Amino acid sequence: MNFSSFEPKTLTVLVVDDERNLRLLLCRAMETEGYQVQEASSGESCLALCEQHLPDLILLDAVMPDLDGFACCNQLQARLADRCPPILMITALSDCESVDRAFAAGAIDFVTKPIQWPVLRRRVQRILQTHQAMTELRQLRAQVKALQEAASPQTPETYIT
Protein backbone atom coordinates (compact mmCIF):
# COMPACT_ATOMS: atom_id res chain seq x y z
CA MET A 1 0.00 0.00 0.00
CA ASN A 2 1.36 3.30 -1.08
CA PHE A 3 0.13 6.16 1.09
CA SER A 4 2.50 8.52 -0.69
CA SER A 5 0.22 8.22 -3.74
CA PHE A 6 -2.57 9.95 -1.80
CA GLU A 7 -3.40 12.97 -3.96
CA PRO A 8 -6.35 15.11 -2.84
CA LYS A 9 -6.68 16.69 -6.31
CA THR A 10 -7.67 13.33 -7.77
CA LEU A 11 -10.34 12.71 -5.11
CA THR A 12 -13.94 13.92 -5.15
CA VAL A 13 -15.94 14.93 -2.09
CA LEU A 14 -19.72 15.25 -2.35
CA VAL A 15 -21.11 17.85 0.09
CA VAL A 16 -24.80 17.36 0.90
CA ASP A 17 -26.56 19.97 3.04
CA ASP A 18 -29.86 21.79 2.62
CA GLU A 19 -28.43 24.88 4.32
CA ARG A 20 -26.88 26.81 1.44
CA ASN A 21 -24.34 28.85 3.46
CA LEU A 22 -22.94 25.85 5.30
CA ARG A 23 -22.83 23.85 2.07
CA LEU A 24 -20.81 26.62 0.44
CA LEU A 25 -18.44 26.80 3.43
CA LEU A 26 -17.93 23.03 3.32
CA CYS A 27 -17.31 23.14 -0.42
CA ARG A 28 -14.78 25.95 0.00
CA ALA A 29 -13.00 24.11 2.81
CA MET A 30 -12.72 20.93 0.71
CA GLU A 31 -11.55 22.86 -2.36
CA THR A 32 -8.93 24.62 -0.22
CA GLU A 33 -7.61 21.17 0.77
CA GLY A 34 -7.31 20.34 -2.92
CA TYR A 35 -10.30 18.03 -3.37
CA GLN A 36 -12.65 18.14 -6.32
CA VAL A 37 -16.08 19.00 -4.96
CA GLN A 38 -19.64 18.22 -5.95
CA GLU A 39 -22.60 19.58 -4.03
CA ALA A 40 -26.19 18.59 -3.43
CA SER A 41 -28.91 20.35 -1.48
CA SER A 42 -30.97 17.28 -0.60
CA GLY A 43 -30.84 13.56 0.04
CA GLU A 44 -32.65 12.91 -3.25
CA SER A 45 -30.13 14.94 -5.25
CA CYS A 46 -27.33 13.09 -3.45
CA LEU A 47 -28.75 9.75 -4.61
CA ALA A 48 -29.11 11.04 -8.17
CA LEU A 49 -25.53 12.35 -8.27
CA CYS A 50 -24.18 9.05 -6.93
CA GLU A 51 -25.96 7.18 -9.73
CA GLN A 52 -24.09 9.34 -12.27
CA HIS A 53 -20.66 9.42 -10.63
CA LEU A 54 -19.51 7.97 -7.32
CA PRO A 55 -17.52 10.40 -5.19
CA ASP A 56 -14.67 9.23 -2.98
CA LEU A 57 -16.36 10.61 0.16
CA ILE A 58 -19.76 12.01 1.08
CA LEU A 59 -20.19 14.73 3.71
CA LEU A 60 -23.87 14.28 4.59
CA ASP A 61 -26.08 16.50 6.72
CA ALA A 62 -28.36 14.45 8.98
CA VAL A 63 -31.31 16.84 9.20
CA MET A 64 -32.81 17.71 5.83
CA PRO A 65 -36.41 17.96 4.60
CA ASP A 66 -37.93 15.10 2.59
CA LEU A 67 -35.10 12.55 2.67
CA ASP A 68 -32.94 13.09 5.75
CA GLY A 69 -29.30 12.06 6.00
CA PHE A 70 -30.08 8.87 7.91
CA ALA A 71 -32.50 7.62 5.24
CA CYS A 72 -30.17 8.77 2.46
CA CYS A 73 -27.29 6.89 4.07
CA ASN A 74 -29.45 3.75 4.34
CA GLN A 75 -30.45 4.01 0.68
CA LEU A 76 -26.87 4.56 -0.46
CA GLN A 77 -25.77 1.47 1.45
CA ALA A 78 -28.63 -0.61 0.02
CA ARG A 79 -28.13 0.55 -3.57
CA LEU A 80 -24.35 0.57 -3.71
CA ALA A 81 -23.35 -2.11 -1.16
CA ASP A 82 -19.57 -2.61 -1.41
CA ARG A 83 -19.24 0.28 -3.88
CA CYS A 84 -20.67 2.81 -1.41
CA PRO A 85 -18.16 5.56 -0.67
CA PRO A 86 -17.46 6.39 2.97
CA ILE A 87 -20.04 8.71 4.51
CA LEU A 88 -19.19 11.32 7.14
CA MET A 89 -22.38 12.52 8.82
CA ILE A 90 -22.41 16.20 9.80
CA THR A 91 -25.16 17.44 12.11
CA ALA A 92 -26.13 19.65 15.01
CA LEU A 93 -27.55 16.53 16.68
CA SER A 94 -25.23 15.23 19.36
CA ASP A 95 -27.44 12.92 21.41
CA CYS A 96 -26.55 9.23 21.76
CA GLU A 97 -29.57 8.10 19.74
CA SER A 98 -28.57 10.25 16.73
CA VAL A 99 -24.96 9.12 16.87
CA ASP A 100 -26.03 5.46 17.07
CA ARG A 101 -28.55 5.99 14.29
CA ALA A 102 -25.88 7.51 11.99
CA PHE A 103 -23.51 4.58 12.47
CA ALA A 104 -26.35 2.06 12.12
CA ALA A 105 -27.27 3.69 8.80
CA GLY A 106 -23.72 3.14 7.56
CA ALA A 107 -21.89 6.37 8.32
CA ILE A 108 -18.19 5.83 8.92
CA ASP A 109 -17.78 8.90 11.14
CA PHE A 110 -19.79 11.69 12.75
CA VAL A 111 -18.97 15.39 13.18
CA THR A 112 -21.15 17.85 15.09
CA LYS A 113 -22.00 21.44 14.24
CA PRO A 114 -20.65 23.98 14.80
CA ILE A 115 -17.85 22.42 12.79
CA GLN A 116 -14.33 22.49 14.13
CA TRP A 117 -12.56 22.94 10.81
CA PRO A 118 -9.16 21.46 11.77
CA VAL A 119 -10.94 18.34 13.08
CA LEU A 120 -13.02 18.00 9.91
CA ARG A 121 -9.92 18.44 7.72
CA ARG A 122 -8.04 15.64 9.51
CA ARG A 123 -11.04 13.29 9.60
CA VAL A 124 -11.63 13.73 5.88
CA GLN A 125 -7.96 13.04 5.19
CA ARG A 126 -7.94 9.96 7.43
CA ILE A 127 -11.14 8.56 5.96
CA LEU A 128 -9.92 9.01 2.40
CA GLN A 129 -6.51 7.48 3.13
CA THR A 130 -8.14 4.50 4.86
CA HIS A 131 -10.63 4.06 2.02
CA GLN A 132 -7.82 4.18 -0.54
CA ALA A 133 -5.80 1.60 1.43
CA MET A 134 -8.82 -0.72 1.72
CA THR A 135 -9.49 -0.42 -2.01
CA GLU A 136 -5.86 -1.30 -2.76
CA LEU A 137 -6.07 -4.25 -0.36
CA ARG A 138 -9.21 -5.59 -2.08
CA GLN A 139 -7.49 -5.27 -5.46
CA LEU A 140 -4.41 -7.10 -4.19
CA ARG A 141 -6.55 -9.89 -2.73
CA ALA A 142 -8.31 -10.30 -6.08
CA GLN A 143 -4.94 -10.47 -7.86
CA VAL A 144 -3.63 -13.07 -5.40
CA LYS A 145 -6.77 -15.15 -5.81
CA ALA A 146 -6.49 -15.00 -9.60
CA LEU A 147 -2.81 -16.02 -9.43
CA GLN A 148 -3.62 -18.90 -7.07
CA GLU A 149 -6.37 -20.13 -9.35
CA ALA A 150 -4.09 -19.91 -12.39
CA ALA A 151 -1.28 -21.77 -10.60
CA SER A 152 -3.39 -24.56 -9.11
CA PRO A 153 -3.48 -27.83 -11.08
CA GLN A 154 -6.68 -28.34 -12.97
CA THR A 155 -8.84 -31.26 -12.01
CA PRO A 156 -9.98 -33.59 -14.83
CA GLU A 157 -13.50 -32.15 -14.90
CA THR A 158 -12.12 -28.66 -15.63
CA TYR A 159 -10.31 -29.71 -18.80
CA ILE A 160 -12.00 -28.67 -21.99
CA THR A 161 -12.61 -31.62 -24.34
Rank of each mutant, 00 (worst) to 15 (best):
L26I: 06
A104L: 10
P55L: 04
M30W: 04
A62Q: 10
Q52V: 13
C73W: 08
C27G: 14
C84S: 11
S4G: 04
V16Q: 06
P156N: 11
L14K: 02
A133D: 05
L76A: 06
P86G: 05
T155N: 06
L76W: 07
Y159Q: 14
A71C: 09
P118V: 07
L24S: 11
R138F: 03
L80C: 03
Q75N: 10
A142H: 06
C50D: 00
T91D: 01
L11W: 06
Q139L: 14
K113R: 14
D66R: 12
H131K: 07
L25D: 06
L67F: 07
F6V: 07
C27I: 02
Q116E: 15
S152I: 00
K9E: 15
T135R: 15
V124L: 07
S152G: 05
L59M: 10
M30L: 06
R123L: 10
A102W: 00
I160S: 11
G69W: 01
L26C: 09
A102H: 05
S5M: 08
P156Y: 09
I115T: 08
L26Y: 03
P114L: 03
K9S: 15
D95G: 00
R141H: 04
T32Y: 07
F110Y: 15
L120E: 07
A107L: 10
R28Q: 11
L54C: 08
T32V: 09
M64G: 01
D17T: 02
T130E: 03
A81R: 12
E39M: 12
Q38M: 15
A133L: 14
A48C: 02
S41T: 07
F3W: 01
S45L: 10
L60I: 03
